[in-house]
Computed example of a mutant assay.
Amino acid sequence: MEGEGSMNDSKQLFYLKLAFLATEPPNCILSLAIEAGGGSITPQVQNFIVKECLGETMKETTANNRAYIRGILQKIISFVEASSVSVVDCLYEELAHYLTTGKEDLQGINHRICREISFLSSDLNGKDCSNSVNLVASLLCSSNMLEGDTGCSLWPSSLFLSEFILSYPEIFTNKSCFEVGSGVGLVGIALNHVGASKVTLTDGDLSSLENMKANLELNKLCLNVASDITCPSDQKVECRHLAWELATKAELKDQQPDIVLGADIIYNPECIPHLVRVFSNLLEEKSFGEVKKEAPVAYIATIIRNLDTFNYFLNVACESRLSVVDITSNTNVPNLLPYMCTYDRSSVHLLKVSVSE
């Protein structure tokens, strides 16, 4: 039993570190720190934060990251000071450092905060936590969605779709994959990780596209945009500007993907006819001479925020001879992000789309 307790303590500290690097909200970090300390933020937990959490965080990171760290440290110190536990000196020293940095004026891409999202293996039982990480994705994300920077935000549907990809790599390995509305590029990073033969990411917003390219470079993936780029073929990802309403049939049919993907793309009724047309062209069955290629399929992860809008999508898809099947209940997608309190996967639906027979 003592061994089980030690393993659980180790897991809680591990979750605390991952949540810190993922820039989860202060209340989440505080809760995990208290849980790791068995009801209080012990000196052991405080030293862990300094050594493991801050030790993994570059001092020269974005100003928003430094402001985030400063806020976390202030919250933790305030909580400890109000308890019977002593604050370790190095925690005060770290706060002093971050109080004098991160207040500079932000410019351009520095408006983003860098989030490190770690996807774990599907089974942590009996495993060394430090060896349980399947994929780590570093993402520059919007620090303020209220400004309308939605394309640079990290949404639950993209997290769920990435979990699906990592849990069922055999579906995507050696397949040509094309994502519609790629946002921060997380799904593309997951596709590259499981060995997709080709990954094409698209977005209709130019600001989102530039941020996506920055994220791919941050994750050491080459952008397949120039012939003089030299890198392993399994590290190339293509980025394209794709406005659904302007995409031509020839442009879409030229892609010939095996799998089409999308996360949180069913939200605007005005865009739905254009979205369905894009999917219809991408999913059209292809043939090479006498050899018929396997019919492409699409996987869409979505939250149904407005039932009328979702039903409208289903109707337009049906009129375009697209079959849309909700496979959420019969597809076991393990929770690979158990440390993320902000991630509510319960409301995400996984849809499989194909051309009707």
Rank of each mutant, 00 (worst) to 15 (best):
S356K: 06
Q12H: 09
E56Q: 08
I171E: 08
S40E: 12
L201V: 05
M1E: 08
G5T: 06
I265H: 07
K51A: 07
T61M: 12
N268R: 12
V276Y: 08
V353Q: 00
K17Y: 09
L246D: 07
H349N: 12
E290L: 13
I266T: 08
L54Q: 04
A82P: 02
A67G: 07
S354Y: 02
T61E: 10
E357V: 01
A214R: 09
E52V: 01
V184C: 15
I49Q: 02
Y15W: 13
F313W: 11
S6F: 00
E217L: 10
D128I: 12
N47M: 02
S83P: 02
I327N: 06
Q235T: 11
S176V: 10
G188W: 06
L139K: 03
N192S: 07
H193C: 00
I113C: 07
Q74A: 06
S86D: 12
E210Y: 06
I165L: 09
I189N: 03
S84P: 00
E170Q: 15
E24L: 04
S130G: 03
N224G: 00
R321V: 08
S157K: 10
R321C: 08
D308A: 11
T42Y: 03
H241I: 12
S233M: 12
W155G: 11
N281E: 15
W244N: 08
K175V: 04
S10T: 11
S287F: 07
V87A: 05
E2A: 14
A19M: 04
N306W: 03
M340C: 13
L223V: 14
L261G: 07
L146I: 13
E24M: 03
T230H: 14
Y15C: 05
V133P: 01
T57P: 01
F172W: 13
H97R: 09
S167E: 06
R305E: 07
N192V: 03
A33N: 14
L209S: 01
D149G: 05
L186I: 03
S10Y: 02
G71R: 14
D258Q: 06
G262C: 03
A263E: 13
F313V: 08
Q255S: 15
T62C: 09
T173E: 08
D258H: 14
I171V: 15
